[in-house]
Amino acid sequence: MNTRVILTIIFISFGSIAAMLPKQKISSIQLEADDLLRDIKLRTHLVSTDELADLLINHDPTLLLIDVRDSVEYGKYHLPGAINIPLKELLDEKWLPYVDQLSKHNIFYSNGTILSSEAGILCRQLGFKNNFVLEGGLNAWFATIIKPEHPGSMATSEELDQYARRKAASMYFTGSSAATDQNSAPALPPVPRKKKKRVQGGCS
């Protein structure tokens, strides 16, 4: 009898402490400094210009390009189908359905890789999934896809293959770029990730 009472008290006390612990989000665990450093070293968040060219040519429906430069630069030129989220506004409420979601693969880009990787790192740290960064940005896109350079007479067959693919991609993008820009419908906001309702009640 006595033991049961003690046991009950112990269970209740552990239970009440557990109930008062800060809530942990399971769906989006925030990353910490060591996790992020490891990710950056492994370069898992980077997408090459060749991979992007494939995705665009195949009209991958899950692709969403996000231009993080300011609206003036975006207005002058942007990749086909890209939306504009200036880096400054990245975490604004109105863009959350785009950056914190599970249905699309976002690729951030800028002129180089600094602005876009800042966007990528901050999103990753907040636990947002499916956000990638175009390695080398528009500069690399133009250097490798739009104006590919012949690898030279000493090139290996792999390099020649890559050059042939890039040359074909170049014709695809420069030949029909004006048409795709006008015809493509503006990207619709993806379905926002459903947030699980937190359990109500407790000691609040």
Binding site: Y77, N111, G112, I114, L138, N139, F142, A143, T174
Partner: peptide, 15 residues
Amino acid sequence: DEAALYDYATVMEGE
């Protein structure tokens, strides 16, 4: 790194 190495719009028109 973030300096534009091409005038992107002009290059696209030229092509």
